[in-house]
Design a protein around this nucleic acid. Structure first.
Lengths: 172, 172
DNA sequence: TCCGTGGAGTTGATGTGTCAACTCTAGGTC
DNA sequence: GACCTAGAGTTGACACATCAACTCCACGGA
């Protein structure tokens, strides 16, 4: 009963290869962000989401929805980023209204810079090495997988947490 | 200069889809492990690696190499798993020799169970929905990516941290 | 007005991951 | 034997992730 009859070697090699590739790629991109922009991936996600709001203040709940994060995670992350000077919580404490979140000037600078740098890194490490066939197969597979694993969320919503925006905001 | 000219919409959609699929899949599998076996993915990785050693004690360094983890990370993880009763550090402290790592009976039980359960989950969520074409393209792409991003590590080495072993150990 | 209830956000506890600094031992050199 | 150094392992500090418990306020009904 110590015999593993779970996955055969071929299946396992496929899984192992995919898992390893996925891990190395995300690790590489995260390190690039840290090295080139001095921000972490979670910081990047928050910065970009706020940046795309083009100056409008977001609530914690909107941010959480948009990032597909837990509200608690957002709150903790904002606390750290407030300390670093990237974001501000407005209408907070005194008069008893709920918190709105907004980028500081420093946050806007970091976001704008990171989007460009990170985009380059994505292109270099992910997009450029892809053959057209691989691109179309991987895209189809990814969309299938997302549909299977994420039944909610209408097609319209929410850029994922880990990427540059499709088009720049008009923000100052 | 607030214009993003980093990735065009098509490129971005591809990246977003892949990123999202990857994240949802790993999240789902990790939750399955937690729910069905009450262990985390890092715990699973360590359990399986030790289990594959079939009773032989591993050193921290070997474990780190095998998992492609930092030694420090391994040490922290072992400290937690020692508390949970999954592993033991032997030859430690008293007579001044270095630590060997070994599974407890409880650790062996958990490993054996988890491999089977996790294998089923991988099959259900990853392998089964794959068409043959997708399987072969994804495999080729993954292997390319690994070669590009992980130039060291001879082909022989090291099962990745996140998977069941290709074949069961003979360990009791 | 008082109470109950629910949503929004925060907080604390604990586990995970990374970096840098540290300890200990073995082994070489004088 | 005393020193030096290199390697193995640990530790501490901090960022990140998740869960459960908490606060605060709005609103609705008795």
């Amino acid at each position: 009963m110590t015999e593993t009859r779970s996955l055969d070697p071929g299946e396992w090699e496929l899984w192992d290869a995919w898992m390893r590739a996925q891990r190395l790629l995300t690790r590489e991109l995260e390190r690039g962000l840290q090295r080139d922009c001095d921000i972490s991936k979670p910081e990047f996600s928050v910065l970009v989401t706020l940046w795309q709001a083009a100056g409008r203040e977001l609530r914690v709940g909107e941010l959480a929805e948009s990032l597909d994060w837990d509200k608690s995670r957002v709150s903790h992350q904002l606390t750290r980023m407030e300390k670093r000077g990237f974001v501000e919580r407005t209408r907070y404490g005194a008069d008893g209204r709920r918190a709105g979140i907004r980028l500081t000037a420093e946050g806007r600078r970091a976001a704008g810079n990171a989007v460009l740098v990170h985009g380059d890194n994505i292109r270099r490490h992910f997009l450029d090495p892809l053959t057209p066939e691989q691109a179309s197969v991987i895209r189809a597979w990814s969309e299938q997988a997302v549909d299977r694993l994420e039944p909610h969320r209408s097609a319209a919503a929410a850029t994922d947490a880990a990427d540059p925006p499709p088009t720049g905001p008009g923000a100052p």
